[in-house]
Design a protein around this nucleic acid. Structure first.
Lengths: 131, 131
DNA sequence: TAACTGTATTAAGACACATAGTACACTGTA
DNA sequence: TACAGTGTACTATGTGTCTTAATACAGTTA
């Protein structure tokens, strides 16, 4: 499914959160699709089930997935993610990173171009998904 | 000078790196200006000098400051930062964050507007600083 | 019932973080 | 030359997080 860097200073469960987010954002994992169970994914990645669970718990608290005891964990449609506070956080992070990029000499035009490319690759199909 | 969250899961030295970067990017700390010594800053923030040193070492390895034994630590002009690898990293981080922002429903127009605002606030004075 | 799901708990080890204390080399100045 | 200030290095210690391991319980599905 993906690879982890066990020697990284970044915790495994955080790497998992990032990778899984990526798969959902790029719609490799589609809305309401079931994620691998904590045990099977742990076996595939040869890491402890508790570590998977920690990642799933984090993803659920951020609104990216929902879990049902006895059934499994599933991708939450992006339109269902609680937005108010979450969007603030992302914007703050973005603000820092954009400032740094400009400081390093990346031009505003470069940055705008990045947005256009990412928007195209990720598919602009969220507009009609809202209710 | 600034505040730290000692109870955060984020290490103090990383918070320091972020805050100091911010001050340099916003030109509160100007090129070749001297930073507080590890001991005085440690006293001001009531944390250990070793922690300050760790932050300074990190900033130096990233090219943001330079240190001279016996004299002090100073802000490195942004045009002197080695760019090749560093810009790649920042662009990768940006790419992830921009994808997430779009996924959460922030529009490309919002993002472009952010860039314009940040560019204005940070001062577009880097173009004529290069050699 | 049986096999699968999520969830919770405790214990242990490894590792990074932060502190404390000490020491050395270098620079600038009285 | 002294002295105070600077960066830098090292060891030791305590603390917290991460990760693993082993169980256990509750709910769902065939």
């Amino acid at each position: 499914m993906f690879e982890l860097d066990l020697r990284s200073r970044k915790p495994i469960y955080e790497q998992l959160v990032e990778k899984l987010k990526e798969l959902m954002i790029n719609e490799v994992l589609k809305p309401d699709e079931q994620l691998p169970s904590v045990r099977t994914l742990a076996q595939q990645l040869t890491i402890n089930p508790n570590t998977i669970q920690k990642a799933y718990r984090e993803l659920e608290s951020q609104g990216y997935i929902y879990s049902v005891k006895g059934r499994g964990s599933f991708v939450n449609p992006s339109s269902h993610i609680q937005n108010a506070e979450k969007i603030m956080k992302v914007k703050e992070e973005l603000s820092k990173l954009l400032s740094e990029a400009l400081y390093l000499g990346i031009t505003a035009e470069d940055l705008k171009e990045m947005i256009v490319e990412i928007e195209a690759s990720v598919g602009g199909n969220q507009a009609d998904d809202r209710n």
